[in-house]
Amino acid sequence: MIIGIPKEIKDHEYRVSLTPDGARTLVGLGHRVLVEPSAGDGSGFPDEEYRKAGAQIARDKAHLFAEAELIVKVKEPLLEECPLFRPQQTLFTYLHLASLPQLTKALLDARVLAIAYETTALADGSLPMLKPMSEIAGRMAVQIGAHYLEGLHGGRGLLLGGVAGVAPAHVVILGAGVVGSAATQIAVGMGARVTVINLDLERLRALDALYRGRIVTLAPNQWAIDQTVLDADLVIGAVLVPGAKAPKLVSRAVVSGMKPGSVIVDVAVDQGGCVETIRPTTHSDPVYKVDGVLHYGVPNMPGIVPRTSTLALTNATLPFIVRLSSEGAERAIRSDPALAKGVNLAYGTVTHRGVAEAHGLRFEPLT
């Protein structure tokens, strides 16, 4: 199979979807790997490393899309890339289509087979390709929040962990999945006062046992969420409904009542966000204020640490890329229930219920 590795063009997105070592594995299995020029530069993987691994450097993006049967990306295509797709081509990437109606329509019109990293799920419900980026995003959310709490950057002028005689900042984490757990680890490590709110009580029990009284755990009801957020200095949105829009847990009214200079980092922004006032931002212009509260809504947060992210992502995606390329996409989907769950669009039809419901489109399950 011919596998295409395009250069990411989202704002300040320096990750690449495959390392040279990953390319070497695929070439060794008899596949042809085409890499767009300078696709790996931002992650520290120059073209020469791909050549040494046996990959070929495409003339340009158009050449790569014209040749490749399987397009492997990091982030969802931008609308300007969609005309490059051709019917029956397979796209394998993070998609987050529930919050992207225009992209959903463009990919439906292109009649591609679109498989999303974030909905590819193992039998136990775990999301193997979402997990590494969620771990990174969760850890980074606390670092970024601490940065914007500094007075120099518009925040309340707080040190997250406080000092002797001065209370630490209060970090409220909405969700205790991979993102929330990673955020909790860093927030506790930095000495913050941490409250975690999550629907799954067993997950809260596990965190409570792990941190031995160093965090407060709360079961969610709207009153408890509202009161806890109003007391927060930093709120981290870490809610996930795979493939669907995130529920809105924090209203505009509650945001308006938060302390001036407080910070919201909503990691769920790529699924619409769990804070009513959040909207997607970019690395070039990452924050804005609503009623004196800073909002950070960059959807591709792990792109800030591209080498770590690229290495972690390839570790997770390569086994699935091998299966898709060696068996062919349709056979791989039939034989692998995890990949089947990843299929969001199939040749002009919506095959993921969450995406269909988000846009009022007809849902047609895979047969």
Score class of each variant (00 low, 15 high):
residue 124 D to T: 12
residue 103 L to G: 07
residue 47 D to N: 15
residue 64 L to I: 06
residue 123 A to I: 02
residue 81 E to M: 13
residue 51 R to A: 04
residue 115 I to Y: 00
residue 69 E to N: 13
residue 132 P to A: 12
residue 141 A to T: 12
residue 122 L to K: 14
residue 89 Q to R: 03
residue 78 L to Y: 03
residue 136 I to Y: 11
residue 128 P to A: 05
residue 90 T to R: 04
residue 89 Q to C: 02
residue 125 G to D: 11
residue 163 V to L: 15
residue 103 L to N: 03
residue 85 F to A: 03
residue 173 I to W: 06
residue 151 G to R: 15
residue 122 L to G: 01
residue 98 A to Q: 05
residue 51 R to N: 02
residue 99 S to C: 06
residue 113 L to K: 12
residue 79 L to K: 13
residue 60 D to C: 10
residue 155 G to W: 09
residue 103 L to P: 03
residue 123 A to E: 15
residue 66 A to W: 08
residue 94 Y to D: 05
residue 44 G to E: 10
residue 50 Y to H: 11
residue 103 L to C: 05
residue 47 D to F: 09
residue 66 A to D: 14
residue 165 G to I: 07
residue 151 G to K: 14
residue 116 A to K: 03
residue 78 L to C: 02
residue 56 Q to R: 14
residue 136 I to W: 05
residue 109 D to P: 08
residue 168 P to A: 03
residue 67 E to V: 09
residue 41 D to L: 14
residue 155 G to L: 07
residue 111 R to K: 15
residue 86 R to W: 04
residue 59 R to E: 15
residue 49 E to L: 14
residue 54 G to W: 11
residue 145 G to T: 03
residue 100 L to S: 13
residue 85 F to E: 08
residue 136 I to S: 07
residue 140 M to W: 09
residue 91 L to H: 08
residue 126 S to D: 11
residue 106 A to W: 06
residue 42 G to S: 08
residue 60 D to N: 15
residue 110 A to F: 04
residue 146 A to G: 10
residue 48 E to T: 13
residue 74 V to W: 11
residue 142 V to H: 04
residue 138 G to M: 11
residue 67 E to R: 14
residue 76 E to S: 13
residue 89 Q to I: 05
residue 62 A to D: 14
residue 119 T to I: 05
residue 83 P to S: 06
residue 64 L to C: 11
residue 117 Y to S: 02
residue 82 C to D: 05
residue 85 F to V: 01
residue 61 K to N: 01
residue 55 A to I: 10
residue 138 G to L: 09
residue 131 K to Y: 00
residue 44 G to N: 06
residue 86 R to I: 00
residue 53 A to P: 08
residue 169 A to Y: 02
residue 149 L to F: 07
residue 119 T to V: 05
residue 59 R to N: 10
residue 58 A to F: 01
residue 105 K to H: 09
residue 61 K to C: 05
residue 119 T to D: 03
residue 68 A to T: 06
